[in-house]
Amino acid sequence: MAWFRRSKSGIESDSKKKEIPDGMWTKCDKCGEIIHKKQLEQNAFTCQKCNFHFRIGSSEYIQILFDEKSFKEMDKKMMSADPLNFVDTKPYKERVKEAIKNTGLYDAVRTGTGKINGHNVVAAIMDFSFIGGSMGSVVGEKIARAIQKSIKTKYPLIIISKSGGARMMEGALSLMQLAKTSAMLTKLAEAKVPYISILTDPTTGGTTASYAMLGDVNIAEPGALIGFAGPRVIKQATGKDLPPGFQTSEFLLEKGFIDFICHRKELKSKVTQLLDLFAS
């Protein structure tokens, strides 16, 4: 072997990146693999090399989970009313406006009915890109109505959580959405309609401390951050180093808080299997 051969991969030039047509290629956040857009889509937005699950929005989940064109959205245009007239470094009203403009969404959750391999379901799917997937009055109300729909139709409920927690800019009203959604879930339980909770990266704070943890079956995507307090807050409060893998899906599985971890590519078939088991 030649003594001058590189043992490690060299420093890659930045200019190479610019040659790639914008939007066609994506780099894996975890292993650095360059993935073509089509390939990424085919893999349900996971890295074919290291299985890293990219953060995706409600549209992608609808595409992955639902039978073609079966998803019918409810309460699409419900919007925040800024009840507190909240201003920090920027008025909340402006933040909302900006988020709507940037994401094309009206708030951090989309709800609706649809079919999964022929099974009718009601679903609520969160969008992290809308103010960190935070839960304020709109998210709470839309989820409460989705549960109501589930009770009425007897269609099983699926909630895909992806959220930093309750939305600060609506103060105590946001906090009350934890109680509101949980209270509504008691009615769903009473009606004996199944609820599958899918926890994705990240699910923290008030979202975890309400509906995300209350599924009849809790499923998590691999490697997702799931917890109550954020890792930084815990580190600050305890002054301790956090153990490796702390607050990941795998950690929660080990501690007994989720039923199983499911690769996104298998999500549809696993959910179908569960729906089958509940139905027959």
Binding site: A179, M213, G227, F228, A229, T238, Q247
Partner: peptide
Amino acid sequence: GAYPGIEAEERGQAEAIARNLFEMSK
């Protein structure tokens, strides 16, 4: 606030709170 500790997370701080919201509602 609820205690933001390592052990608290291990024992399911979020689940414990969520469960209470659910059970207290009924």
